[in-house]
Design a protein around this nucleic acid. Structure first.
Lengths: 135, 135
DNA sequence: CATAATGATACTGTTATGGTATCTTTACGA
DNA sequence: TCGTAAAGATACCATAACAGTATCATTATG
């Protein structure tokens, strides 16, 4: 099981890189060279971050990406949600009416608790906080 | 993402059923009729529980399954592990040396924390405790 | 010894994930 | 003004995990 898939992972690395670079604009070319990610895949990821308002893109020669949101406001939980949808530790198991039983109550509640805990932690962890402690 | 997959889900339901039934021995036939699960799939699940020492099987006519472990000692974490391997919230992302960076430290640690929390809760939740509160 | 049970195992369909390929659009700058 | 270097959009492909099926072998009971 994976909270952080490749999409999200690449997004996080790219965002960290852009923050640290202190440049006006960062191109995919530069990111690929320095972070060693598959170019077409990374492009898809960045395009999505653009659509979602995390990055802002500039087309044309010398184009590239800049942050559209302050790094303190980009939460890991949000990034996961962008690439995988709402964070869940249980998908369908309890929805289908296979389980109108004792079990459902207790187990479902338990997992809900874990899920809430996980979500709340991921939603308070930002790109900025990843970079801060690293120094 | 799913902590509890079908395997595990069926296993939990079947185990609860067996405990509640108070019978000497419970056959797949009975389980399938009462719990409405796909028969061949459930059989695989039960065979695995037998191999792992959770159930004990009896072959031949009037055969079936009985608990081989007390319900207080059958933990949900264990069942998940049987069907999915060790519980993880992060698989490979950090292992591959793509990330010898600042980020790895903080994010990895954070997810480790969530993972440990989840594992510890799942490992203290037993079949018996699922049934208890239901009453 | 027929039959009703489990054991073992190989196969199949679907979906999520990770990734590629290609064509279009845009804007800088010589 | 036009070539070129960037991003946008989209369609496609490969693999693995998950969910489930199908079949045949083995075993114990009545």
């Amino acid at each position: 099981m994976n909270l952080i898939t490749r999409n999200t992972d690449y997004a996080i690395r790219a965002l960290c890189y852009i923050v640290k670079s202190n440049k006006d604009i960062v191109s995919v070319k530069e990111l690929v060279e320095d972070l060693k990610m598959p170019r077409p895949f990374l492009r898809k990821v960045l395009q999505e971050l653009n659509r979602r308002g995390i990055l802002r893109s500039y087309k044309g020669k010398n184009g590239g990406f800049v942050l559209a949101t302050r790094p303190e406001k980009i939460y890991i939980g949000k990034l996961i949600e962008i690439f995988k949808g709402p964070i869940k530790l249980q998908e369908h198991t309890f929805k289908k009416k296979i389980c109108p039983e004792i079990k459902s109550c207790v187990l479902k509640k338990e997992i809900d608790t874990m899920e809430k805990y996980t979500i709340s932690r991921l939603n308070s962890l930002s790109i900025a906080s990843l970079l801060k402690t690293g120094k």
